[in-house]
């Protein structure tokens, strides 16, 4: 055996990687389910994964295997707006956004066969059905319009992002849909007045609104 040093170095790196991967796949998921519970809470997700946090939140493991989970993104059939639906633990949150002035946040339950009827403010509705092959089809009634859509299962950083803040006394709510390929559709609402949103960095969620740096967080039910 010649000089084991370099091999031991590689082996140590490999073991370390496996060790961290194990930590990630056990601890990381728990901390996520306990911090991303509500999209409206602008809490920092950097909370440390602690055993107590895992106890207070419903254990994700058994539910997740049964209920569909993941993010579906796409555009409406008339190409006017973007739609994204995030599923987890039998619940769904959807964001509908045309990037100018029509947007809606909707939520509801997912029934056994992947059927969901979501509702939002001002009578907004979204009906969707999970199809095979990573598709989700449905219709949405938002802002007086009726839209049909087919969404594809998306990978991060595609998905729904949301930011809440106060800037210069105005209440700011931003919503973004990051589509596969990096295209974004978003609206920032200042004291209830919607306008096109500046782009976020999908990797970190960083965005500058009216000169103030905000962090948009991924939205999951």
């Amino acid at each position: 055996m010649k000089r084991p040093g370099p091999l031991l170095t590689l082996l140590a790196g490999l073991l370390l990687a496996v060790f961290i991967l194990t930590l990630d796949s056990t601890t990381g998921t728990r901390s996520a389910s306990s911090t991303y519970e509500k999209p409206s809470s602008a809490k920092s997700p950097s909370a440390k994964p602690s055993p107590s946090a895992a106890v207070t939140s419903p254990s994700p493991a058994p539910k997740r295997s049964a209920a569909p989970a993941g993010v579906y993104t796409g555009r409406t059939d008339d190409d006017s707006s973007a739609v994204a639906v995030s599923l987890r633990g039998g619940k769904a949150i959807a964001y509908f956004c045309d990037g100018h002035n029509i947007e809606s946040w909707l939520k509801g339950d997912v029934k056994g066969a992947g059927v969901m009827r979501l509702t939002g403010a001002d009578g907004a509705r979204l009906n969707g059905t999970l199809k095979g092959g990573g598709k989700l089809t449905g219709t949405a009634d938002v802002g007086g319009g009726h839209y049909a859509f087919t969404l594809d299962r998306a990978k991060k950083p595609s998905g729904i992002y949301r930011a809440n803040s106060q800037v210069a006394g105005a209440r700011i709510v931003g919503g973004w849909i990051v589509l596969p390929g990096g295209r974004q559709v978003g609206i920032v609402t200042r004291d209830g007045k919607p306008a096109a949103a500046p782009a976020i960095d999908p990797e970190t969620g960083a965005v500058t609104v009216d000169g103030q740096r905000l962090t948009a967080r991924p939205v999951t039910p």
């Binding site: 990630d24 601890t27 901390s31 920092s44 440390k48 994964p49 990978k155 991060k156 950083p157």
Partner: peptide, 13 residues
């Protein structure tokens, strides 16, 4: 499928 999350070290934002 990127998880988007992982365990975090204490003391960092």
């Amino acid at each position: 499928d990127p998880s988007g999350i992982a365990f975090n070290l204490a003391g960092f934002s």
